[in-house]
Amino acid sequence: MCQHQPPCPSADAADRDAAYLVAFHPEQGWGLLCNGVVLFEDWGELLPDGRSVPSRRPAGREVLGRAA
């Protein structure tokens, strides 16, 4: 899915959240990264293979362009 050079981290990489945001729906609380990961407002994630990653939002950090 990613066509950036150098390529963004894959959905299986530990730093997968560093991929570019390609779709953003703040009214619904989610964004799609170019590696296929859906990142939710609470920093939970849905991976392309259907696995979910629970929220791991650090206190006091900005999330998807909005204050936490």
Results as ranks from 00 to 15, higher is better:
10 S>D: 09
5 Q>S: 15
26 P>G: 11
21 L>W: 07
56 R>I: 00
54 P>Y: 11
48 P>D: 05
64 L>M: 13
23 A>W: 06
36 G>R: 10
5 Q>P: 04
33 L>N: 04
30 W>I: 02
56 R>M: 01
4 H>Q: 06
33 L>H: 06
44 G>K: 12
58 P>R: 12
51 R>W: 11
49 D>I: 03
20 Y>P: 02
41 E>G: 03
16 R>G: 01
3 Q>K: 08
65 G>C: 13
4 H>I: 00
19 A>D: 04
40 F>L: 14
49 D>S: 02
37 V>N: 02
38 V>Y: 08
68 A>D: 07
8 C>M: 07
24 F>M: 08
20 Y>L: 15
52 S>Y: 12
55 S>R: 15
60 G>V: 11
40 F>M: 14
65 G>A: 09
4 H>C: 10
37 V>P: 01
24 F>Y: 15
11 A>G: 05
26 P>Y: 13
42 D>N: 15
3 Q>E: 14
53 V>P: 00
45 E>I: 01
19 A>F: 05
28 Q>C: 04
44 G>T: 09
47 L>V: 02
7 P>N: 03
21 L>I: 06
12 D>L: 11
23 A>R: 15
7 P>C: 00
44 G>M: 13
66 R>M: 09
15 D>Y: 03
5 Q>F: 12
51 R>F: 09
15 D>A: 10
19 A>R: 04
37 V>A: 01
30 W>M: 02
60 G>L: 14
18 A>M: 06
36 G>H: 07
1 M>I: 06
10 S>G: 15
64 L>A: 10
63 V>Y: 06
48 P>S: 08
14 A>F: 09
26 P>L: 14
42 D>T: 03
5 Q>W: 13
61 R>P: 00
64 L>N: 09
12 D>I: 09
18 A>Y: 05
40 F>K: 09
8 C>E: 02
15 D>H: 05
32 L>H: 10
20 Y>C: 09
35 N>T: 00
33 L>Y: 12
55 S>Y: 12
15 D>R: 07
54 P>Q: 11
46 L>D: 00
53 V>C: 04
28 Q>W: 11
25 H>S: 15
14 A>P: 11
4 H>A: 08
58 P>A: 12
67 A>C: 06
38 V>N: 02
41 E>C: 11
1 M>E: 13
1 M>H: 14
20 Y>D: 13
7 P>M: 07
14 A>E: 15
42 D>G: 02
7 P>F: 05
58 P>K: 13
44 G>E: 12
40 F>N: 14
8 C>L: 06
41 E>Q: 09
29 G>R: 11
28 Q>P: 00
24 F>A: 06
16 R>T: 00
23 A>K: 15
67 A>V: 10
13 A>N: 05
7 P>D: 07
27 E>L: 05
3 Q>S: 05
46 L>F: 01
62 E>Y: 12
47 L>T: 01
67 A>H: 10
63 V>T: 10
50 G>K: 06
5 Q>N: 14
15 D>G: 03
54 P>T: 07
53 V>N: 04
39 L>N: 01
31 G>A: 15
21 L>G: 00
48 P>V: 08
56 R>C: 05
14 A>Y: 11
18 A>W: 08
64 L>W: 09
17 D>G: 04
61 R>V: 08
65 G>S: 10
2 C>T: 08
35 N>Y: 03
41 E>Y: 10
57 R>P: 00
67 A>T: 08
13 A>D: 13
7 P>T: 06
13 A>I: 01
68 A>M: 11
